[in-house]
Design a protein around this nucleic acid. Structure first.
Length: 289
DNA sequence: CGGGACTCCTGAGGGC
DNA sequence: TGCCCTCAGGAGTCCC
């Protein structure tokens, strides 16, 4: 589910609500995530202060004292919820009923914080994970070491794109989804970026023209920034940590729009769907060349 | 190098 | 009500 904008929204909310708090206890309801949770390592954070929270592409990094870093990836359905007893809005949350002390069956890990507050890792499909590193090894970890530049960073440029696409026979969509090339994009945003750039998603990368590359860079940054601004996309059940939904899904032009009429003025064609690298791909045959 | 099938897991929604 | 099928924001492996 969560791509860069969603993870960024969650990170900002985490900084506001849980940064600087002490972990009082940890409860594991299910160790079997994408990787099994190491109980020995996770219990080491009990008593430690959560000093800093950062995001790297789709990963969240939690920095504790004693040089311990917790790495969380949300996979397809991972979510973090913050529960604060004093705040009434959580009582009415669709998700968590504090008065009944009812846990959701997909709450996999519960971090108990100061003042009766909790941070809950909930994940229906269990494709996400929680791993531990130390401060010095985190950036050389299996997950972070080969990530490409982030799409909103200055080094994600037309020049970089041009150099990378040269000689590549893969489809442009496949390349934009590849975290080693650019880290943080996923299926939704790549569909949207290619629609705005008027490029058919199955075009071979080395056939993309210079003016089209410039559009890719421009729309990638524009779409991601706008999505972050509107709280990310809430398809099905994405929410930020306080249960708030984003609204960027209202601005989707192609994702999930099979058989709808193309949103471009002067185009009356239906949005089509195909599969690229096994992922749902939506496009307008008339508008995307 | 490239593409496709398949894997992890659980639930929603459609068809009958 | 129920059963069976397909599909889903990710990402890795294996095989041809």
């Amino acid at each position: 589910m969560p791509e860069l904008p969603e993870v960024e929204v969650v990170k900002r909310s985490l900084i506001k609500n849980v940064q600087n708090l002490i972990i009082k206890d940890v409860k594991i309801n299910d160790v079997k995530l994408r990787y099994h949770i190491n109980k020995k390592e996770i219990t080491k954070i009990i008593g430690l202060r959560l000093k800093k929270i950062k995001r790297k592409s789709k990963f969240l990094l939690f920095f504790f004292n004693k040089n311990i870093v917790m790495l969380i990836h949300l996979g397809m359905t991972g979510k973090l919820y913050f529960v604060n007893k004093k705040d009434k809005k959580y009582r009415t949350s669709f998700y968590y009923d504090i008065d009944q002390k009812k846990e959701n069956k997909h709450d996999r890990v519960i971090f108990y914080l100061e003042k009766n507050q909790k941070l809950i890792y909930n994940d229906v499909r269990k494709f996400g994970f929680i791993k531990f590193y130390n401060f010095n090894s985190i950036h050389n970890s299996l997950h972070l070491k080969s990530l490409g530049p982030e799409p909103l960073e200055k080094n994600f440029t037309f020049k970089y794109l041009k150099k990378y696409l040269n000689g590549k026979k893969r489809s442009i969509k496949d390349i934009l989804m590849d975290q080693k090339f650019v880290s943080g994009l996923g299926n939704i945003y790549v569909n949207e970026i290619l629609f705005s750039s008027k490029i058919k998603p199955d075009r071979k990368a080395d056939k993309i023209k210079v003016f089209e590359m410039k559009k890719i860079i421009y729309f990638t940054k524009k779409i991601l920034n706008y999505s972050i601004k509107t709280g990310g996309s809430s398809i099905k059940d994405f929410t930020s940590i306080n249960g708030k939904k984003g609204s960027f899904q209202q601005h989707f032009q192609v994702y999930g729009k099979k058989d709808d009429i193309c949103s471009n003025i002067n185009c009356n064609k239906k949005i089509l769907k195909m599969s690229i690298s096994g992922r749902a791909t939506f496009y307008c045959l008339k508008c995307q060349k």
